[in-house]
């Protein structure tokens, strides 16, 4: 599904920052990948590159076998509109719209206004347990509900690839668990996912974890054991990396 080859990214400016040096990895169709690493390790840059919101300074990113650098502007837009779903830590909902309308925005952009689409929205809202909030403005609902709305918005057009940048960063423990179970369920249904996270609990839901530090991949883990055991391995890898103390102390066993 995704193939990242020798990718680097430099932000121009007075102080030259290099968030990514040389990154290589593959994400198979139907995989659920977590990207972990301390602040400033280049996680968000990586997500921006995968979402074609930014272009790598060097190297190639192949998505479904196509080099994203060869995308024309319209193709990039269509790719984001049709193939991609993105979830943010800060939800990034449009304040002027209601919950339901927020979920329908990708359909508006895609030019789909069928009744089937609306039914799909209701179905999705039920599944996300926000079907009673549909007519509320987004600032009237709680953080967890907002994140579920954002997930609903990312799912409404049934994307094949889901990118999530700290999807549970602003959520409490219960909400995190709920969101992750939902994502895992979607993954089982065949959706490929890349999740950037600080949280080993979130990583333990995934079947492939990348550890990023100072702009390069330090280590990779593949899961072939129960989640609880995998969680321990994630923590071990974090501490082996020297990770950062902050993460270890913040770990909550589930």
């Amino acid at each position: 599904m995704i193939e990242v080859k020798q990718v680097g990214k430099v932000y121009p400016g007075k102080v030259i920052e290099q968030p990514l040096t040389d990154i290589n990895f593959r994400v198979e169709e139907g995989e659920m990948v977590a990207v972990m690493g301390p602040s400033g390790s280049g996680k968000s840059t990586l997500i921006n590159l995968l979402a074609t919101l930014d272009q790598p300074s060097w190297g190639t990113i192949l998505i479904q076998g196509i080099d994203t650098a060869t995308f024309k502007r319209k193709e990039t837009t269509r790719f984001r509109r049709e193939t991609l779903g993105i979830i943010f830590q800060e939800f990034n909902l449009l304040d002027s719209l209601t919950v339901a309308e927020n979920m329908l925005v990708p359909l508006m952009l895609g030019g789909k206004k069928t009744k089937a689409a609306r039914d799909e929205m209701h179905h999705l809202a039920k599944r996300l347990q926000i079907d009673e909030l549909l007519d509320k403005q987004v600032d009237e609902v709680s953080g967890g509900q907002r994140q579920r709305t954002a997930i609903g918005r990312a799912l409404i057009h049934a994307p094949r690839l889901m990118l999530a940048d700290e999807p549970t960063g602003a959520l409490d423990f219960q909400a995190t668990k709920h969101v992750m179970e939902l994502l895992a369920e979607l993954n089982e249904a065949g959706m490929t996912m890349v999740i950037v996270t600080h949280d080993p609990t979130v990583a333990s839901y995934c079947n492939h974890v990348l550890f990023l530090k100072d702009g390069s991949i330090q280590t990779e883990l593949f899961r072939d054991e129960p989640r609880r055991v995998f969680f321990q391995r994630v923590i071990e890898s974090l501490s082996l990396l020297g990770g950062d103390e902050h993460h270890l102390s913040a770990i909550r066993p589930t």
Partner: peptide, 15 residues
């Protein structure tokens, strides 16, 4: 901010 959100959702220049 809104424009960026719309962009990530696949809003092109024409939209």
């Amino acid at each position: 901010n809104d424009l960026r959100i719309m962009r990530t959702l696949g809003s092109g220049f024409s939209h």
